[in-house]
Nucleic acid binder design. Structure first.
Lengths: 141, 141
DNA sequence: TACAATTAGTTACTTAGGTAACTTTATTCG
DNA sequence: CGAATAAAGTTACCTAAGTAACTAATTGTA
């Protein structure tokens, strides 16, 4: 059995995050913070659980990231009828940083995709998604 | 621009590591420890720097993992002419755990690959490798 | 040969993610 | 209605990986 497939996969994502972190430093963000900001931009406002589901990351991780973004005044709490949940949204400053970061990320990802054909991109994406569903099955064994 | 490609990629590797960790718990290993044991099995013996290069992981990370594997008596130091370096190798116990773990990992990876064609696997691996080289170029910008 | 530069490894500190156990608030149902 | 259950967040603690700065040993070189 050849393990290089998954090994390459893991190595790539590790490097990807590192390099993107370097770029995002310009906007004062880490990759994980960017993901949360991106998520809020798509959804306008969201609770921690909604974000957790969207990003597929556990709640405590979201709690920590939210705390930091709040300290940087990039997000703010909004009132809620249900006192258990604490919905948040981007502040003006947060929206501004989003605009800065989206340019960095788009540029970064476009450069990475250089000279990789549409077809290969599609095949790869389809394969990854298939691997993900196979992982879910794995859960039940 | 569609960000889902890289997003899917990151989510997959995160889930992959989590699930594999669950499986490897049976052998008393974490994924990172498994990687190091696998590396030592391929190379017989190696220094931290050699392992670091092989796995493409920074030295301090290797130091920590080595320390834990030593505590579990799965690896041992061997003498070296150069007093700076500390080559290590698998112990008998380590070799035994390797045999147990390789079965778990092979089974896990095979199940994941279920119903994914050879051609798609090849295309995906080629694309990932291409993305990695594009990342390296990115370094120099 | 003596001193500068390099190399191997470690330590301290950071972000990122996970699980388990907890509190507080809502909801369900006997 | 009131007790049990469920849901949203948080806290504490774990592994993993990174950078920066350090020590000790070895090489290179003036």
């Amino acid at each position: 059995m050849d393990h290089s497939f998954f090994h390459q996969q893991l190595q790539f994502t590790r490097s990807f995050k590192n390099k993107l972190n370097e770029r995002l430093a310009e906007a004062g963000l880490f990759h994980s913070q960017w993901l949360l900001i991106y998520c809020l931009k798509q959804q306008k406002a969201a609770t921690l659980v909604e974000i957790s589901n969207y990003l597929n990351v556990e709640k405590p991780t979201i709690t920590r990231t939210v705390k930091r973004l709040e300290e940087q005044m990039l997000i703010e709490k909004i009132p809620s009828r249900d006192k258990r949940e604490r919905p948040i949204q981007l502040t003006e400053k947060g929206l501004h940083i989003y605009e800065e970061a989206i340019r960095i990320v788009n540029d970064f990802e476009q450069n990475l995709m250089e000279e990789i054909s549409e077809i290969d991109q599609e095949t790869t994406l389809r394969t990854i998604k298939r691997l993900k569903t196979n992982l879910m099955k794995e859960e039940l064994r």
